[in-house]
Design a protein around this nucleic acid. Structure first.
Lengths: 225, 225
DNA sequence: TAAATCACATATATTATATATTATAAATAC
DNA sequence: GTATTTATAATATATAATATATGTGATTTA
């Protein structure tokens, strides 16, 4: 989970640079895409890193709405649409698809930065330093995990797998999905490998290992009951 | 956690009524305040209920900014500011104080409702999609089924068969159709197999098992009556 | 080089299916 | 309308098929 990486999607190189400069100055790291197809590609490869997307509506190949729709099928990442003035009809349409904000061109970069920060503030507000799940405390900043107050040692993969499960509490996750999100998307390894890691995590969690439920035929699910 | 109660703060009675009517139509419950002081009072007494505040900037006694500042000292409740056109300077100032959104007057009520819903959607991220069919609740994300509130355990096939029946509520499904949809279409097994699974599902559903109707000579149908 | 990751083999547990038997509903004859 | 036949479904159970847990060793990474 990279800290506050922002994806800028716009076909105008000049516009991307303008936005980028302002955001970099504020300490964000930036990814860019020059059309809708590239945007989806970049998003796929950096799902976990990206914490906000600035998405132009008018683009060649695949327009902003199509990109929005596709991303919303699998992710709730905040999205700000960049539009030309006077498209109120579209606004409504977009809100239904989960647009977080509209900014119409031309805009003042300061306003843009302010809106980005407002959204990220709101998003990060439930990312308390330490969250507890039925006695399993996870401190993402410190990358540490405690069980009933006692710290346990998890390897990199173990930690990331556990965090992924926990971030998707109560959701059944297929092995494919787990591989795509915890491993690199282009990883073609044996999906049994997940089992090995699950086993180790369960063992380290002790009694609380049972919170990781096996969903036969599918994968796993984290559930504290 | 009251379900989506919204506080409207505006000195114009007419404006409050306008907004209120639209939001009530969408199923929200409403609290009102006609100036800043009243707003703080109402907020104090209903902190836990209120999930969003619509706050006018220009008000007698205590203006919107002051109210915003005071509320932000103790709460992160989403706030939408209602402003007159052309106050970009103020916008920046507001974002720093944690304003979630601006809507400038005059506005179309539809846009207002859309923005409210966008923000609440973002805020309540645990609005799981659970559908209920005559007391049988199915949570597809979690792949769990409850009968009268009590969870039951279904195997992969049982779960998928039940979901298929339920997704086609009130439609008679032939065994062939069921085999093609729940099993792989290149499956050449005995179609009596379905009966076995139906039996198990009915048993696990208890009294509600009777919602799975037998259509003699054809197959089965899910119907909650 | 030690720790971590991964693949694979085997044991174990679970689930799916086929088969046999019983029960039930529909069709037919009386 | 009732009894008998016939077709179909329900049920129980045994066996086959499948998925997961676990242990081990090879390979990679830091």
């Amino acid at each position: 989970m990279g800290d506050n990486c922002i994806l800028i999607v716009d076909d105008e190189q000049r516009m991307r640079k303008l936005i980028k400069d302002f955001l970099v100055a504020k300490g964000y790291s930036i990814l860019e895409a020059e059309d809708g197809e590239k945007a989806l590609e970049v998003f796929e490869n950096n799902k976990n890193k990206i914490s906000l997307i600035l998405l132009d509506v008018m683009m060649p190949k695949l327009d902003g709405w199509s990109v929005l729709r596709q991303i919303r099928q699998e992710s709730k990442v905040p999205i700000i649409m960049l539009t030309a003035r006077g498209e109120e009809q579209d606004e409504l349409f977009g809100f239904e698809l989960g647009v977080d904000e509209y900014i119409s061109k031309p805009f003042s970069p300061k306003v843009l930065v302010a809106r980005v920060e407002a959204i990220l503030r709101r998003t990060n507000k439930d990312q308390k330093e330490v969250k507890s799940y039925g006695g399993i405390e996870i401190d993402k900043e410190g990358r540490t995990v405690k069980v009933d107050g006692k710290p346990i040692e998890l390897s990199l993969r173990e930690y990331e797998l556990l965090v992924y499960l926990v971030d998707n509490e109560n959701i059944a996750l297929s092995r494919d999905k787990i591989l795509n999100n915890v491993w690199n998307y282009d990883y073609y390894g044996d999906s049994r490998t997940i089992d090995s890691h699950i086993k180790k995590i369960r063992h380290k969690l002790g009694k609380k290992g049972k919170y990781i439920k096996t969903i036969r035929g599918i994968g796993y699910k984290f559930e504290t009951k």
